[in-house]
Amino acid sequence: MNFDSGDSRFYKNDENENLICEINYFVDGSGMIVIDRTFVNDDYRGQGIAAQLVERVVELAREENKKIIPICPFAKGMLERNSSLYADVMG
């Protein structure tokens, strides 16, 4: 899925501009990307969209040579379960 971006988030709306999904993050004072929220509308759950959102933030971190601090429980679990894949971006 291709996500839109803006205001420290990646997101996708449906054709009626209803929010399908989003991930919110911010860059803290030390330059780390902090993932603080992941959301997927109930109608779209179970399709791996939240994992795609986390992966998009990982891509951003790699592009900008930054580390990630996941405080969102979903993102934290995903990154920790797959720590060998994400060791380069874990803060």
Rank of each mutant, 00 (worst) to 15 (best):
D43L: 12
A51F: 03
D28C: 08
D42V: 10
I35K: 05
R62P: 10
N82L: 07
G31P: 14
M78E: 14
N82Q: 11
R9V: 02
V89S: 06
A87Q: 09
D43W: 04
L19I: 08
S84D: 14
E80T: 12
F10L: 11
L85V: 04
D36Y: 06
N24S: 10
N65I: 08
G48L: 09
A50Q: 03
E15G: 09
N24K: 14
S5Y: 11
V54S: 12
D4C: 08
A51G: 15
P73L: 07
F74Y: 14
L19N: 06
Y25P: 00
R37N: 13
D88S: 10
A50R: 06
E64S: 14
F3G: 06
F39P: 00
R45A: 00
D14H: 05
C21L: 01
F26E: 11
I23P: 03
N16H: 10
E22G: 01
D43H: 11
M1S: 09
V89N: 01
G91H: 05
M32Y: 13
I33D: 01
Y86R: 09
M1C: 09
I49G: 05
Y44T: 00
F10M: 11
V57Y: 00
I71T: 14
F3H: 05
R56Q: 15
R56K: 15
V34E: 02
G6V: 02
V34Y: 01
A87V: 07
Y11D: 06
K67A: 13
L60F: 08
Q47G: 08
D28V: 08
L79D: 07
I35S: 03
G46C: 09
V40T: 09
S83Q: 13
L79V: 04
N13S: 12
D14Q: 05
K12D: 04
E22W: 02
N82F: 07
G77M: 10
R37T: 04
A61H: 04
I49C: 11
A87W: 03
N41G: 07
I69S: 13
E17T: 00
